[in-house]
Amino acid sequence: MAAEGNAIDALGQFVLYPALGQVGSAVGFTNSNLYMVFAGVLIVALMVYGMREAAMVPGRMQGLAESAYGFIDDMVVAQVGEEGRRFFPFVFTLFMFILFGNMLGLFPYAFTFTSHITVTFALAATVFVLVTAVAIALHGRKFFGYFMPEGAPMWLAPIIIPVEIVSYLSRPISLSVRLFANMMAGHVMLKVFATFVVMLAGLGTVGPVLSLMPLALNIALVAFEVLVAFLQAYVFAILTCIYLHDAVHLH
């Protein structure tokens, strides 16, 4: 995956290949899935091992687990309202899964499963199906009134209804593309500048000095990517909450 000659292989890090040897390739278990399992195990470890003492005054791990819980709980209640509490486990799973996927991807040699549009779209489609199912279950036929806002003049209906339907259908696309594009762009940049470090270091005497510049840039980029990893997980979760609010309250 490193630079071969003068070529910059920024996309090699996104290639899927079977993980876990023979068994993995037999069931189509990929490196992407391996990191999903890592993320899941780490999340469960944090929430179960961190809470094992269930202390009245939390320690560091318990404090982290409780902060994560409180953060998403507050978000769900603030965005959806008290009746949104039953979606809390879903939003929590979604947020933690994406956050851990993004963060794990920042480790060297790790695979970032959120940098695959198919994965992010699958998650966004799950949200879309859930939101639509909740809206129809709660409001039945009235749900379709969502596409014609109350108070709008009737003669605007031919314009408003298609626009509303398109904007509703484009939610999973914007949701998935935002996460995918952010993660992919960040990892490509990291790879490109990392390759520059290696290439410049090979340029005779001044090379190692010059290579310090992309190295410094990469250090800043990693810090930025940590921010992006958190921010994108947050955006995904809060947009899910906003969609759930629409589904529960219909505007």
């Binding site: 899927l16 189509g28 992407s32 994965v119």
Partner: peptide
């Protein structure tokens, strides 16, 4: 592998959701 990755994604995500 694109398709199998997604199948495993649903399995892993579902299991994680259930455990949590």
């Amino acid at each position: 592998l694109m398709t199998t990755t997604l199948l495993w994604l649903f399995l892993i995500f579902g299991a994680l959701y259930f455990v949590l």
